[in-house]
């Protein structure tokens, strides 16, 4: 049994064994020698390719370390392939920064697919690379071929997380299908996002703070669905409204609705409403900034005795 776990399944990401000409590939630099740098092609089952020194940079190379470093991943273009003997010439200077960035996306997608399928293979207790390759053939490659685009199956898998029937044309047996769906759901499920809007409320009429309270309550009442709305005070007169949602559009609509209710309510009482930040996704960085801001405001708002500051200066 122990032996079965030691098997490390490997399979290339795409159907073709070798990259095509002009294709951009992700490589890991193995060793750098006088003539060039030897790399492994991560997407093609770690086969070896070489970046010739004259293909590293268009400009004069002052320090090779700035361009290539052993162990680092690089986006490079394939300029020559010998499929019979397995030699591949690569070029770094023929890849522009924009192309590289664009390609990164595809690589990450393909890598995710690989992880999903490897997980499936593990659950189905595959023992050999042939079985793994067959799985690839039946799923990812089949989709890639039908869409005629490498890495196309990422989007299909993503849809399948919500709508499993989309995998039906693949004609998988039940075990594989279930394992695949499980794995897809684990990896590709939608992450809930946090939405946030910032607004100002003022009311200098007779009802004052009561009017504000009333308006905020009305806003909260707008939606009772799950997950609920939340309103927090940053520092008067600023408030934030947050909610978490799986569907961004739905969440934004919800926040906008609640804000409209608040506006209506406060204006009835002759107060003023002002939106500062429209509803948008809040990242962790935003959260941290908000926390700092609140601390800062709290300090600024603290009541200070008029005498205190003077006594120190005397």
């Amino acid at each position: 049994m122990a032996a079965s776990f030691s098997v490390k399944l490997n399979c290339r990401y795409y159907q073709s064994r070798f990259p095509q000409l002009d294709e951009i590939v992700m490589v890991n630099v193995n060793r750098i020698q006088d003539m060039g740098a030897y790399c492994t092609l991560l997407e093609y089952n770690d086969i070896e390719g070489m970046i010739l020194m004259s293909e590293v940079s268009r400009r004069r190379i002052r320090s090779l370390n700035k361009h290539l470093r052993v162990g680092r991943n690089e986006c490079v273009a394939v300029i020559r392939v010998d499929e019979v003997k397995g030699y591949i010439d690569l070029s770094k200077k023929r890849v522009s920064t924009e192309e590289a960035e664009k390609f990164q996306e595809r690589f990450i997608k393909s890598k995710t697919i690989n992880q999903i399928l490897r997980h499936v293979a593990d659950t189905l207790k595959f023992q050999s690379n042939e079985e793994f390759e067959e799985l690839y053939q039946n799923t990812a490659w089949a989709i890639d071929v039908s869409k005629d685009k490498k890495g196309a199956c990422y989007d299909i898998f993503k849809k399948a997380a919500i709508e499993p029937s989309i995998l039906n044309p693949l004609n998988l047996d039940e075990n594989t299908r279930d394992a695949l769906l499980n794995s897809i759901r684990r990896r590709l499920a939608h992450q809930p996002v946090k939405l946030r809007a910032t607004f100002e409320l003022n009311c200098y009429s007779y009802e004052g703070i009561e009017a504000i309270k009333h308006a905020l309550r009305a806003g909260l009442m707008y939606s009772t669905g799950d997950p609920p709305l939340q309103i927090n005070l940053i520092a008067p007169p600023e408030y934030i409204m947050t909610t978490t949602t799986l569907d961004q559009n739905e969440g934004v609509a919800k926040l906008l609705g609640a804000l409209a209710v608040i506006k209506q309510s406060i204006e009835e009482k002759h107060g003023s409403y002002n939106i500062l930040v429209e509803p948008k996704i809040a990242t962790e960085l935003d959260d941290m900034e908000l926390e700092n801001e609140m601390k800062h405001r709290e300090l600024a708002n603290r009541e200070v005795d008029g005498d205190d500051s003077n006594s120190e200066n005397d």
């Binding site: 390719g49 070489m50 010739l52 010998d82 591949i88």
Partner: peptide, 10 residues
């Protein structure tokens, strides 16, 4: 007659 430079060098 090698079609790749890396092979020629090798």
């Amino acid at each position: 007659k090698d079609p790749t430079i890396s092979q020629i060098l090798e």
